[in-house]
């Protein structure tokens, strides 16, 4: 099914932030905002919740830490105990460096893989952006058009009075 969008193009992030507030205050639902760099304060005006990725990272790290300790204790303490340098079989202080490294390894990679999955980032040859300038110097506010419901002229007017330098329409094959 095709989806239609109205795109408001902005060339300044502060104007965009004010525009988002006003557009939302006018009762219009914003589909997505695209920008060439992270804009500070946009999460609040768009109502984006704080990411839970740090929590994921914590649990991946916890898993890495437990796994590393279990691995070393089981291998050198139970599976094949050996006396090395007169130390006890389970020489905990000597196990700390590997435990630390594996904690970091699991936390970092676990979080990054989660990030790729939830953000749907994967290698592909498609060019997915609505307006190619949004990875260069323009800021794009996309509003979905519902046939018969959305008043495009009014929307055009709303975006322009809030500082859009251009308003375009775009159809996207889904």
């Amino acid at each position: 099914m095709n989806k239609k969008f109205v795109l408001g193009i902005y060339d300044d992030e502060d104007v965009l932030l004010t525009a988002i507030e006003n557009v939302r205050a006018a009762g219009t639902k914003i589909y997505e905002v695209f920008s060439p760099f992270p804009i500070h304060g946009i999460d609040d005006v768009l109502g984006i919740k704080r990411s839970r990725l740090p929590i994921a990272a914590f649990f991946f790290g916890l898993f890495g830490c437990s796994f590393a300790l279990w691995m070393q204790i089981w291998m050198l303490g139970f599976d094949w105990p050996m006396i090395i340098g007169g130390k006890p079989h389970i020489a905990l202080p000597a196990f700390i460096p590997v435990t630390f490294e594996l904690t970091v390894l699991f936390a970092a990679h676990g979080m990054v893989i989660t990030f790729f999955i939830v953000t749907k980032l994967k290698p592909s040859t498609k060019v997915p952006v609505f307006d190619k300038r949004s990875t260069d110097d323009k800021f794009v506010m996309a509003i979905e058009v519902k046939d018969g419901v959305t008043d495009i002229a009014a929307l055009n007017n709303l975006l322009r009075t809030n500082g859009a330098i251009e308003v375009n329409q775009k159809e996207v094959l889904k």
Binding site: E32, P36, D43, S51, P54, T119, L121, P123, S124, V129
Partner: peptide
Amino acid sequence: FLSFGWTGSAKAWSRYETVSLI
């Protein structure tokens, strides 16, 4: 291919910044 289908949406940037910080 290298850009992993990046669009620069506000949600993606928010997560990107979180991931960078962690």
